[in-house]
């Protein structure tokens, strides 16, 4: 969420070795800058990004008006049912999806698994999701995202977590929600928490931001920037449990810049129709007449899991720190 008047460049903490990501190209052009990475997410605003596991799914998503697709091995609902270790998808499948559609293709890497991220960058994926839905590869360290040319999106449950990820180089944030449940309450809590914490920061005296940074366990520079802007310095999407057009509009009205839908589409009775309806609801999130129209006759929604009944070990949102 650049404010359009200040270059987001200023927000970058610069530490450690010079990042390999910003490569000067031919004729004085530069790839992989923070502005280019964050700018890509700005273009997705007001749109829906859909989880897909096959090229056929990807085509259905593009036909429905998705702004991007997220390639993964299994949708979160299946990961819950089948268990086992969830990893980056097969490169062959990702290439198939890249071939099949003209819209951006994102793909998931495990938390801390920087080699999966290297592979995804090599494949030409447009965004990497360092995702709690997959089995974490490192309990202590997330990926150093500054060292990549490809941009990253990361999940967050609160403002401190969002700012730690941005400090590591994330160019887009999404609420974690509780993926694979079809139950939106966790996404609501995360979005309200992040927005509430931002509002609180904006009301503080500048001299109080140092202590706020300590409490949030986040870099001071980013805390001060959020207090000044009144929002994150990057785009904030929502994810985790969105299953209906009304869910998508709810999250937009709560201040999300856009929506990720995981299992909600391809685990429902009529994926193409539901996908179209969620896209239209995300655009017209403030127009109840349109929401009433697009919510009709969509067939069965995905069978949900009540997220509050999940065992602690089954909660994806608690993965990462």
């Amino acid at each position: 969420m650049s404010d359009g008047l200040t270059a987001p460049e200023s927000a970058q903490p610069r530490r450690g070795p010079a990042p390999a990501a910003e490569v000067p190209g031919v004729g004085g052009t530069h790839v992989g800058t923070a502005r280019v990475k964050r700018g890509m997410a700005e273009m997705l605003k007001g749109g829906v990004i859909m989880d897909v596991v096959t090229a056929d799914h990807a085509r259905i998503a593009e036909d429905a008006g998705a702004v991007a697709v997220m390639a993964l091995e299994r949708v979160p609902a299946d990961i819950r049912v089948q268990g086992g270790v969830a990893r980056m998808s097969d490169p062959e499948m990702i290439e198939g999806i890249i071939e099949a559609v003209s819209i951006p293709v994102m793909a998931k890497a495990r938390i801390g698994h920087f080699v999966e991220a290297q592979v995804l960058q090599e494949l030409g994926v447009d965004y990497v999701d360092e995702s709690e839905v997959l089995t974490p590869a490192d309990p202590h360290h997330h990926i150093d995202k500054w060292s990549f040319t490809v941009p990253f999106v990361c999940g967050a449950t609160n403002l401190g977590e969002a700012l730690r990820r941005i400090g590591e180089g994330a160019a887009m944030i999404r609420s974690k929600g509780e993926a694979g449940t079809g139950e939106v309450s966790n996404a609501v809590v995360h979005m309200r928490t992040i927005r509430g914490e931002i509002a609180r920061l904006s009301a503080l005296d500048p001299s109080e931001l140092y202590s706020a940074a300590k409490e949030l366990r986040a870099p001071y520079e980013l805390v001060a920037e959020v207090a000044r802007l009144g929002r994150l310095p990057v785009v904030l999407f929502t994810a985790g449990g969105i299953a209906t057009p009304a869910d998508a509009a709810l999250m937009m009205q709560l201040g999300a810049d856009g929506v990720f839908v995981g299992s909600g589409i391809f685990k429902s009775g009529d994926p193409a129709r539901r996908a179209r309806a969620i896209v239209e609801a995300t655009t017209m999130y403030n127009h109840a007449d349109v929401l009433a129209k697009v919510s009709r006759g969509l067939g069965e929604a995905m069978v949900g899991i009540n997220a509050s009944e999940l065992e602690p070990a089954a909660r994806f949102a608690d993965r990462g720190w």
């Binding site: 190209g25 004729g27 004085g28 052009t29 530069h30 790839v31 992989g32 800058t33 502005r35 280019v36 700018g39 890509m40 273009m43 951006p104 960058q121 030409g124 447009d126 965004y127 040319t149 490809v150 941009p151």
Partner: peptide, 27 residues
Amino acid sequence: GRQVDSFEAELDLAGVAGGPVRAVFIR
């Protein structure tokens, strides 16, 4: 190209005075 090829560059534009424009190209 794709996002990994997205870039920024200085650009001279006809009809825009005051030196080159910083142009951000995304896909």
